[in-house]
């Protein structure tokens, strides 16, 4: 690890003001600290978001669940509000990494990182969530751009994510046996504007599976998607799974997500 400065501001505007060109925000540190330790990244300053109370917490109002950027996976997983409004989201959070990771890792850190195998991006895209930053709002589908790339500008701070409550939603994950990240994860949501199916782990970044959405729009049942194939070209291929296997798993996981939807 190279040396760096460290700051722990108390408010959003101080944090935004404190972060310079070669600086980074620090949330749970579960992704970024290992990167620093392996010297894959170098910063002048880490601006720790841990003391900013307004970035933490979950609220439900009307037809929307709002989750602060610094809310940990463990908090989301055990939240009675999330469990009753979008149970699939609590289920997803409960299956991220291990207990230590869930106690430190945050929703803001996860989506800012946009790891292709992260779980949250599928939920944001399927549920049609909105990402709120210190100066704007971004629709989930516009937020996740490519492999480890988001729509965030340099120094832009995610403050919260708001999720419209779906009629029904389900998430099914095929974990990478080693890392337990998603080899393939499929989030299915039945929303007022139709069914949305978002796939993570399989491609460079989260994407929607249009054929499955159409099939589920007319018949929201596990069998409706089982036979629908996804084109393997462009999907990830590595020592854990070929693109063809990932393509196949999308159908299996989509069908299981529908079966689990509530």
């Amino acid at each position: 690890m190279y040396s760096f400065e460290y700051e722990r501001p108390k408010g959003i505007s101080e944090a935004v003001g404190a972060v310079g060109e070669d600086d980074k925000f620090l949330a749970g540190g579960q992704s970024f600290l290992p990167t620093l330790k392996l010297r894959l990244a170098q910063v002048d300053k880490l601006v720790d978001l841990g003391s900013i109370a307004e970035l933490k917490g979950i609220t439900v109002s009307g037809n929307e669940v709002s989750i602060g950027a610094m809310t940990t996976h463990a908090t989301v997983a055990s939240s009675a509000d999330v469990k009753s409004s979008i149970p699939a989201l609590a289920h997803l959070a409960a299956h991220i990494g291990d207990a230590q990771v869930r106690n430190r890792g945050t929703i803001g850190g996860s989506i800012a990182n946009n790891d292709p195998a992260a779980d949250y991006p599928s939920a944001l895209v399927a549920l049609g969530a909105t990402v709120h930053t210190n100066n704007r709002t971004i629709a989930a589908e516009d937020f996740f751009v490519d492999l480890f790339e988001t729509a965030l500008e340099e120094g832009e701070l995610i403050t919260k994510v708001t999720f419209p409550i779906a009629e029904k939603a389900g998430y099914a994950k095929f974990p990478n046996p080693a890392s337990r990240f998603a080899l393939v994860g499929v989030f299915v949501a039945k929303t007022a504007s139709g069914v949305r199916v978002a796939v993570t782990g399989a491609g460079p970044s989260v994407f929607r599976q249009g054929d499955m959405e159409a099939a589920l729009d007319s018949n929201f049942s596990p069998d409706a998607v089982k036979g629908i194939k996804t084109d393997a070209s462009g999907l990830n291929s590595d020592i854990h799974a070929s693109a063809e296997y990932r393509a196949h798993l999308i159908s299996v996981m989509a069908s299981r997500a529908v079966a689990a939807a509530s």
């Binding site: 046996p177 080693a178 890392s179 990240f181 020592i239 854990h240």
Partner: peptide, 11 residues
């Protein structure tokens, strides 16, 4: 070595 950490080497 591709299995150079526990993220890829499955214990």
């Amino acid at each position: 070595l591709l299995t150079g950490s526990y993220m890829d080497y499955c214990m």
